[in-house]
Design a protein around this nucleic acid. Structure first.
Lengths: 146, 146
DNA sequence: TGTGAATAATAAACATGTTAACTAAATACG
DNA sequence: CGTATTTAGTTAACATGTTTATTATTCACA
C-alpha cells in the first residue's frame, strides 16, 4: 500500500503509458540512428518526406510532430548535408516546398533491414495480430477531437 | 502516388504512431498543466511519487521516463516549491529518498476533475472497451525485451 | 481595390533535455 | 583487508525544443 490519492495508476494513464511504450520501442531504434549519426527528429522528417513527396514545411511539422521553428533549423542542416532540397513555391511565395533527395532516400533504404529486424523482434514477442490491433487503436486515438 | 521507398507508412510505424497518438492526448492536458504552471515532466514526477510512495531518484527517472540529470534539476525546483521532500538514506548514503508532500498531493487532487474530464472525452469517442484494450496492449508492449 | 486579418516561415531569447566528466559511497573479490 | 569496479547522484557544456516577436505574403471582404 502506498500514499496514493485515489488516482488511476500511471500504467493506466494514457499519456504515461504511451510515453513508456514509446521508450521501449525507441531504445533499439535510437541505437540504430546513433550509428548513422541521425537524430530521431531527422529520421521522422525523412520518413514523412519519403511518404508524402514534396510538401511545405508546415506539413512536415504537423506530420512529424515538430514545431515550425524546429523544422526550420532541422531542414537547414539537412539541406546542407544533402538529404533534402528546398525551393520557394512560385504560386504562394510564403511557402517553401521540400523534397527528399536520393541521398536522403538512401539513408532510409540502407537501414531498412535494421528497421525491419527491430519491428520483427517486437512482432515476434507480441504477435502480429496484437501489433496490428495496437496500430489500429493508435490511429483511431489520433483521430479523436480534443 | 508518391516517391516512396517501399517503406511502411508512417501511420503504421509504431514509434511515429505512438508519438502522434500521444500528441493528441497531451494537447488538452498541456492546457490544464499550463493553467497551474506545472510542466509535463513535473506532473509525471508527482504521479509517480503519489503511486509509489518514497523512492530513490533513479526510480523516478525510470518510471517517469526522464534522465537522472533532468530529475536532479526538476526535483531541486520542486523541493523549493514544497511539492516534494528529500532525505539522504541512512543505510546507503549514495541514495536520496524522495516523497510527495501534502502540497504536492493537493496539486493532483485539485486537478483530478479536469483530468477525468479529459479522459472521459476520449472514452466517449473511442468507447471504454477499446480504451481498455489499448492500455492493455501498451502495457504488454512496455514489457517487450528490446 | 484597398486595408485589416490570417498564414508561412524565420529569428532571437529562453527553457529544457542530453552527454560526458566527476564525486562519493558501496560492493566484489584477490 | 584493500584495491578495482560499480552505483547514485551531481555538475557543466552543449544540443535541442519552445515561446514570442517579426517579416513577407496572401486572403477576406467592405
Amino acid at each position: 500500500m502506498t500514499t496514493q490519492s485515489h488516482i488511476k495508476s500511471t500504467a493506466r494513464s494514457l499519456p504515461i503509458a504511451l510515453l513508456r511504450a514509446r521508450e521501449t520501442v525507441m531504445s533499439p531504434i535510437r541505437d540504430m540512428l546513433q550509428s548513422i549519426h541521425l537524430t530521431e527528429q531527422k529520421w521522422r522528417v525523412l520518413r514523412v518526406l519519403d511518404e508524402l513527396g514534396e510538401v511545405e514545411q508546415s506539413t512536415i511539422a504537423h506530420e512529424a510532430c515538430l514545431l515550425l521553428p524546429s523544422v526550420t533549423r532541422i531542414l537547414r542542416t539537412m539541406e546542407a548535408e544533402g538529404q533534402i532540397s528546398r525551393r520557394r513555391d512560385s504560386d504562394d511565395k510564403r511557402r517553401t516546398m521540400v523534397t527528399i533527395t536520393n541521398a536522403g532516400r538512401s539513408i532510409l533504404t540502407d537501414n531498412l533491414a535494421a528497421s525491419l529486424a527491430i519491428t520483427g523482434n517486437i512482432e515476434a514477442q507480441m504477435g502480429q495480430e496484437k501489433l496490428d490491433q495496437l496500430l489500429d487503436l493508435l490511429e483511431e486515438l489520433q483521430a479523436v477531437r480534443t
